[in-house]
Simulated assay, not measured.
Amino acid sequence: MENFITDINDLDLNKKYSYADYILWKFKERVELIKGKIFKMSPAPNVSHQEISRNINRVLDYYFLDKPCKVFYAPFDVLLTDKKKSSADNDIQTVVQPDLCVISDLEKIADGKKCVGAPDLVIEILSPGNSKKEMDYKFDLYQEAGVSEYWLVYPEEKSVNIFVLKEGQYIGLKPASEGQIFNSHHFPELTADVDKIFI
């Protein structure tokens, strides 16, 4: 008999947890697990965040329609594995839910429920309550896990910062802002119009 936890207050937020624990949590709050520590996610995204996510998703869906890649949007669990540990549920201590992600290696989603390993492209849309987490913790996590390309979307500035993994380190490209069209580095034929993202 599995012991599901239905109240987040029953957890010790100072303790470290694994994916084996995470799958037993059935409370209403959305959380992410970052190196074993619980991070509460911001409340439901505001309308602007939702619209930006939908606009980017349209671009991705159109481009990847007949390609052997899959596009996912939150909530969708991405398990980032530690290269020094196994991929067993009790060894995975990082579970994130990026706003959008693209996965080429479909073996990573073999069970149809989650991605185990680094997506090729991760997109995070900043909101007032999560900017520190996205800019600091997740930047390091995605770099460490080997996410090839990471877009940070700034709704207030109407700009997109693109980071590309080179020899294990992210290199920031020139930010894309209003009036500009930019290309993905990992998928060079994928283009996005900044003005259509922030309609």
Score class of each variant (00 low, 15 high):
Asp10Arg: 11
Asp10Trp: 08
Asp12Gln: 05
Asp12Trp: 06
Asn14Phe: 09
Lys16Ala: 15
Ser18Ala: 11
Asp21Leu: 05
Leu24Trp: 01
Lys35Val: 02
Lys37Gly: 07
Ala44Gly: 09
Asn46Phe: 11
Ile52Leu: 02
Arg54Asp: 14
Asn55Arg: 13
Asp61Cys: 14
Asp61Phe: 11
Tyr63Arg: 01
Phe64Met: 05
Phe64Ala: 03
Pro68Tyr: 08
Pro68Lys: 15
Val71Trp: 04
Phe72Pro: 00
Tyr73Ile: 06
Pro75Arg: 12
Asp77Trp: 06
Val78Met: 15
Lys84Gly: 04
Lys84Glu: 07
Ser86Met: 07
Asn90Gly: 00
Asp91Gln: 10
Asp91Ala: 14
Gln93Gly: 11
Asp99Arg: 11
Asp105Leu: 04
Glu107Ser: 09
Asp111Gln: 07
Gly112Cys: 06
Ala118His: 07
Pro119Glu: 08
Val122Ile: 15
Pro128Ser: 10
Asn130Lys: 11
Glu134Gly: 08
Lys138Ile: 15
Lys138Arg: 11
Leu141Asn: 12
Tyr142Val: 08
Gln143Phe: 02
Gln143Trp: 04
Glu144Ile: 04
Ser148Met: 08
Glu149Leu: 09
Leu152Met: 14
Val153Trp: 03
Tyr154Ile: 06
Tyr154Gln: 09
Tyr154Ala: 10
Tyr154Leu: 10
Glu156Trp: 06
Glu156Ile: 07
Glu156Asn: 13
Ile162Trp: 00
Glu167Phe: 12
Gln180Pro: 01
Ser184Trp: 01
Glu189Trp: 02
Thr191Asp: 14
Asp193Lys: 15
Lys196Ser: 13
